[in-house]
Amino acid sequence: MKGATAIALGGATALVGTAAQGANATDHEAFIALSVTLTGLTAAELPAMVEQNDALGVRLKLYEIYFERLRSSYPAEFRELLVAWREVEDKPDHELVLSEKLAAMDPAAERLRVAARQVVKIWLLSTIDDPRTKPDVKTGRNNGQLGGDLGQYQYSAIWKLIGAPVPGYSSFSHGYWVNKPGIKLDAGAAYSLLPISTDLLLPDIGTIVELPDG
């Protein structure tokens, strides 16, 4: 395993970004290492190994789901970012080198930034910019947003970094808020595997027939 993370996935030869052929383990390893570098999360903090069922009941890891999501939403930009990562991953100062690449002023760097933004957002917030909408001319931000599948929001890593529960998913007890959170600001606690809803299909709310349950 190269780069910043120690998560080993085992696997095959690298086939970076060949969407038609599907991702292999090396692409996934690169994606995880790239994610760690971009987000500033440690490998242990990245909820990469969380498992969810897809619509057909196949058990997948979050890094597989997110990789697929980014590749299908931003095929060109994401591929270019993975290639750029491959060029720097072995360098001891890969974060700095990648950061310089991303801060360049040419159109290629802008495309890398678009992809980098999505990688950071998907891990920190579980959302990505909608590729069909154009960024706002004034702010440069994309107002079109796409949420994750049901159950992914609770792994939005930003909350853990600031010592807060993901809204709606407190696993603490009454009154925990009196105390200062037990986190170090620059290295949050490792991700615990919370119980997660594995049902990715959203039932139609219109069909609910329910008696008051007292």
Partner: peptide, 24 residues
């Protein structure tokens, strides 16, 4: 997070530890 990922000046686009520190 959006603010930090969309700086007014693209040359200040930051990642990694810098981004994390700024955000937190």
């Amino acid at each position: 997070v959006e603010e930090n990922l969309n700086p007014a000046e693209p040359s200040t686009f930051s990642i990694g530890k810098t981004l994390r520190h700024k955000t937190v």
